Amino acid sequence: MRFILSLLLTAVLGYILGIFLDWWSVALAAFVIALLYPQPPGKAFLSGFLAVFLLWGALATVMDIRNGHILATRMANLILQSPSPGLLIVITAVLGGIVGALSALSAAVLRYRKPARRA
């Protein structure tokens, strides 16, 4: 339950901060949520990655559909040497996911304590 809550809150806070700040605001959102809702580092990494991956993927897809795939196709031709806007959207989402994952992992490592061993 905490994983899903963390995922949703990271995506919502990342979207809200993205309205007012630059692209790096998703890292801030993932860090804050991972501090407020402590999880093991692996789960925090995965929730940060999935939240930002889904957020950036959805936002890039909506922007691509709104302009009729013109900009993404041109950028894919320029960068990837391939007229595939879908691949460019996936690459964008993966890069954003990595930013969110590393940020959430940083907060989790900062906060998380292993349970004490029983003798």
Rank of each mutant, 00 (worst) to 15 (best):
A29V: 06
M1Q: 11
A11Y: 04
S47D: 00
K43S: 10
L88S: 04
A101I: 12
N77M: 05
K114S: 14
L50C: 10
L71D: 09
W23D: 00
A119N: 14
A29G: 01
S25D: 11
R74W: 08
R113K: 09
L13C: 00
R74V: 01
A30V: 04
A51K: 08
S84P: 10
V62L: 07
I79V: 15
L36Q: 09
F20S: 09
A30Y: 06
V26L: 08
V12H: 01
A93K: 05
L110Y: 15
L110I: 06
S47M: 10
A51S: 15
L55T: 13
R74Y: 02
D22Q: 08
L59F: 09
M63C: 01
L80E: 07
A51G: 15
V52C: 05
L71G: 09
V94N: 00
S47H: 06
A107K: 01
G86F: 10
L5I: 13
V94L: 15
A108W: 09
P115K: 13
L80D: 04
G100K: 01
F53N: 03
A11D: 00
M75V: 11
G97K: 01
G96R: 11
P38A: 12
A58L: 13
I98P: 04
A58D: 05
G14H: 12
A116F: 08
W24A: 04
G68S: 01
W24G: 02
L50M: 05
A76C: 07
V32R: 07
Y112K: 14
A30P: 06
M75N: 08
A27Q: 06
W56C: 14
L13M: 10
G48E: 06
I19Q: 13
S47T: 11
I33D: 02
S106E: 03
L78N: 09
A72G: 12
L50K: 03
S103W: 13
R117N: 14
L71H: 12
A30S: 14
A44L: 03
V62F: 07
V32E: 01
A72I: 04
D64I: 06
F53W: 03
G18H: 04
L13V: 07
L8C: 05
Y112S: 02
A76P: 13
G42I: 00
A11L: 04
L21T: 06
I4A: 08
L21A: 15
G57S: 08
V52T: 02
T73A: 02
